[in-house]
Design a protein around this nucleic acid. Structure first.
Length: 820
DNA sequence: CTGACCTTGTTTTTT
DNA sequence: ACAAGGTCAG
């Protein structure tokens, strides 16, 4: 296990603190600090204001990372601080890694890297491991993810005999999270909050915390909240860290929640050398506890704070900036900032209305191909330079379907993360058990995976036995197996499992060696250096081999090898990748400790692809060409957001629109559809109110094939906006539309423009006859058995029999070709 | 214990 | 429409 004190507060770094006074005299000629010359005046101001609180209001694309890097360089070059005295906080591992990479590339890269650079959670975990006992944990506590958290809550709810229907674990998890985001321990939850979920909620919260303590575990929220408690209740410890971290840098400050804010305030409390970088106009995570208020009241919280605005944008054309500014101007609650640029040329933001979502997707596909060829006098663009940003992930489907049929390569960002995948979590549960047999959650997860004939009943018996004897589930299982409490096949396989667990644990024990505390919060690249020469030859020699053995012996690998579903090969592939990831760690323990906090899977693909993702996922990214589809009231701004949080919600949606537009460098295309399939029902849509807010002089309306959207207005403000919207709504009440919608009825399967589709479908169907060999992008190869209407009955080689709409099918011979 | 049905709730997502 | 999660019969 790690030695938590190895670089504690009073390390060498602190005893030879470079006194600021001494350093001050040396800051004079700029020639000493050439990186300052690369900055614009605002950036330089932010960089040179090293002492005292600073708020860097950095608009989209204004070079805030550059300024941050320069600031770190400046802190070190002016000898204000050693790198070990700088605390740099980010929200995502990606941001932390990026910062680290970029810093390494600067010529001012310090001899030693900034060790205290990482996410709130990673840094908190690192700190909490040193002080775990103060909140009733051991230093090797495990960090549960959301899935574990919910399963635990579910157990609690069931144990308490509470109706699961009325109080779903997910809901309770959400409420507890909210409280934790506010740094409210169970004893501090105010009565007013309690009313929201009945007193029972607090009770359950307290029980849940108790249970976590017993499991020696934390959830994500705990990491921050526990550290706030530690700081609040232990002045000496707090003072130690205040002294150690002489300079604090915070990225994406607008995303901090209350608990994180307290965390920062406590740490910055002494010297007040805190520099927060953020953009109130890009605060889009209010729904998960982020407090825009934190950034809005910075000056009040840190009196005498210097506020620097970075407003020169290096990313987008003037029209794109103009459109974005026009939209964001609609928000009341903002500090105020206006982006500007040196650039002079560039196209206007394009706006187009479509008949329905399908047509929208088709049009975007064509536009992408046009951009690829080079259009409107622009040089050809790579697919990597284009992105489609949607409000909700279900919007992606239409694009995926379309791109699949025309063979346009795309990548979807988002979706389940690597370590959230079932197979990865299962494998990890095995590893966790090998390392610690006390891990009840892990045991529950894998006890019947692969199938061992141990269902609910058996698990209940094990749980009862464990509880009666006051031991872990593994011990309980051991008793059940040996005492024959579980009979037959199940009992036998349970005995086997326990024996295997013992064997793996023994091997882990053999491998055990004095571990070194690794300080790389961002990433660990320690190479495995095991010295296990004295192990019997047939035993796995490294943790990597052990992992393979575990997956093999448990039958887990075999389970997927025998699985016929098309996902199975991918899952096996993921398992291989997981084992490979072990290489960067010294042992299983080290791996497990870090994986919950740092494992991402952004593997770089070689092929050029269009990116499809949500607006949220796009924050911080930029693309030469951006498509913003689905700008329809109710979808964007989202109805739910407005219903739940009213004006606040609407303003956050507007910021989302701002984020979307400002992702674009050269080409920005906004679109909406007049009809959309919502929860299986056709709905007629109104263009988004944000469209009215786009200044006319920065927008050009593109004629669409359905031609229903004619008069584009500038949003002049005032009552005319409503009029305009109503006026445009007329387009949807045209005789043609009325006829369509009446004909469409409620049960129609095809969209209101059925005529066109039927033709296509029939064409598509007629291309096949029974017995044809065909290909489908998701199900693979198969044989046509029968034709029913526009659907084909296909017996897929891997995926079995399925009915598929003909247009998704390609003759096997030219798989990948466009079907029409 | 498992597979076939039925009910339910559908924004955004990190750690 | 559709996926996920729960229920219930074999």
């Amino acid at each position: 296990m790690s030695s938590p004190d190895d670089d504690d507060l009073i390390d060498a770094g602190d005893s030879r603190v470079p006194l600021s006074q001494r350093a001050m005299g040396m800051v004079s000629a700029r020639a000493d600090f050439p990186y300052l010359d690369e900055l614009n005046p605002a950036q330089r101001e932010a960089v040179e204001a090293l002492d005292g609180p600073v708020l860097m209001l950095a608009g989209a694309g204004t070079g805030k990372t550059k300024a941050l890097m320069a600031r770190i360089a400046h802190l070190i070059e002016t000898k204000k601080a050693w790198s070990s005295q700088i605390l740099a906080v980010t929200f995502t591992n990606k941001a932390a890694r990026e910062m680290k990479d970029r810093l390494e590339k600067t010529p001012y890269n310090q001899k030693e890297p900034i060790r205290w650079m990482g996410t709130f959670h990673a840094l908190s975990a690192k700190l909490l491991r040193r002080h775990a006992e103060l909140v009733g944990l051991k230093s090797n506590f495990t960090i549960l993810d959301t899935d574990d958290q919910i399963r635990l809550l579910k157990q609690l709810i069931v144990a308490e005999n509470i109706d699961e229907k009325r109080w779903p674990p997910r809901l309770l998890a959400g409420i507890i999270d909210t409280w934790k985001n506010l740094a409210l321990t169970p004893d501090k939850v105010p009565a007013s909050e309690a009313a929201a979920f009945n007193e029972r909620g607090i009770e359950l919260y307290a029980q849940y915390q108790e249970r976590l303590k017993n499991l020696n575990a934390t959830d994500f929220g705990d990491l921050i909240m526990h550290m706030v408690s530690v700081f609040q209740n232990n002045e000496d410890i707090l003072r130690g860290y205040q002294q150690r971290f002489r300079y604090i840098l915070v990225d994406e400050y607008q995303d901090t929640n209350v608990a994180q804010y307290m965390w920062l305030r406590l740490l910055a409390g002494g010297h007040r050398n805190i520099c927060c970088v953020g953009d109130d106009d890009q605060s889009i995570y209010g729904w998960r506890g982020a407090e825009v208020g934190n950034i809005l009241k910075f000056e009040k919280d840190f009196p005498g704070a210097k506020v620097v605005r970075l407003e020169q944008n290096y990313r987008s054309t003037p029209h794109i900036l103009g459109a974005a500014s026009g939209v964001i101007r609609g928000n009341e609650n903002r500090l105020g900032k206006e982006l500007w640029t040196d650039k002079t040329d560039g196209e206007k933001v394009r706006l187009i209305g479509h008949w329905d979502g399908e047509e929208e997707a088709r049009w975007v596909g064509e536009e992408i191909e046009a951009l690829q060829r080079g259009t409107r006098g622009m040089a050809p663009k790579s697919l990597d330079d284009m992105a489609i940003l949607v409000r909700a992930s279900h919007q992606m489907r239409a694009f995926e379907d379309r791109f699949l049929t025309i063979g346009l390569p795309y990548r979807v960002i988002g979706g389940p993360r690597f370590y959230e995948r079932m197979e990865i979590r299962d494998a990890m549960a095995y590893f966790r058990l090998a390392v610690s047999q006390d891990d009840d959650l892990a045991f529950e997860r894998i006890v019947n995976t692969p199938r061992r004939g141990l269902g609910d009943k058996a698990v209940q018996t094990i749980q009862m036995t464990a509880r009666q004897n006051g031991v872990s589930l593994v011990e309980g299982a051991r008793i059940c197996a040996s005492d024959g409490l579980i009979k037959g096949k199940g009992g036998k396989s349970l005995g086997q499992l326990v024996a295997q667990l013992d064997r793996w644990a023994a091997i882990v024990h053999l491998h055990a060696q004095p571990a070194t505390d690794d300080d790389a919060v961002v990433e660990d690249d320690g190479t495995p250096m095991l010295n296990l020469g004295d192990l019997p030859a047939d035993l796995p020699k490294t943790h990597i081999e052990l992992a393979e053995v575990i997956l093999d012996e448990s039958g887990y690998t075999a389970m997927w090898q025998n699985d016929k579903t098309p996902e199975a090969p991918g899952r096996l592939e993921n398992l291989k990748e997981l084992v490979k990831a072990l290489e960067s760690f010294e042992n299983l323990q080290g791996f497990l400790e870090h994986v919950s906090l740092i494992m991402d899977n952004d593997s770089e693909e070689a092929e050029e692809k269009v990116t499809i993702m949500t607006l949220h996922a796009a924050k911080g990214l930029e693309y030469p060409a951006v498509f913003l589809p689905g700008w329809e009231d109710g979808l964007f701004p989202s109805q739910r957001s407005m219903d739940e949080t009213g004006l606040k919600g609407l303003e956050e949606e507007r910021r989302l629109a701002y984020v979307g537009i400002t992702r674009a460098e050269e080409v920005c295309t906004i679109s909406f559809a007049q009809n959309r399939l919502v929860y299986g029902q056709w709905q007629s849509q109104l263009p988004s109110r944000f469209i009215d807010e786009l200044p006319e002089e920065h927008v050009v309306v593109v004629p669409s094939s359905s031609g229903l959207y004619r008069n584009m207005s500038g949003g002049g403000g005032g009552p005319s906006q409503l009029e305009e919207r109503a006026h445009r709504a007329d387009a949807y009440n045209s005789p043609g539309w009325k006829r369509m919608s009446r004909k469409g009825g409620l049960r129609r399967k095809s969209p209101p423009n059925e005529g066109r589709n039927v033709v296509i479908d029939l064409e598509a169907v007629s291309a096949f006859t029974a017995g044809d060999r065909v290909f489908h992008t998701k199900f693979g190869y198969g044989t046509v058995m029968e034709i029913e209407g526009d659907k084909l009955d296909i017996e897929f080689d891997k995926a079995g029999a399925k009915k598929v709409v003909a247009k998704f099918i390609v003759p096997a011979a030219k798989a990948g070709d466009v079907p029409f």
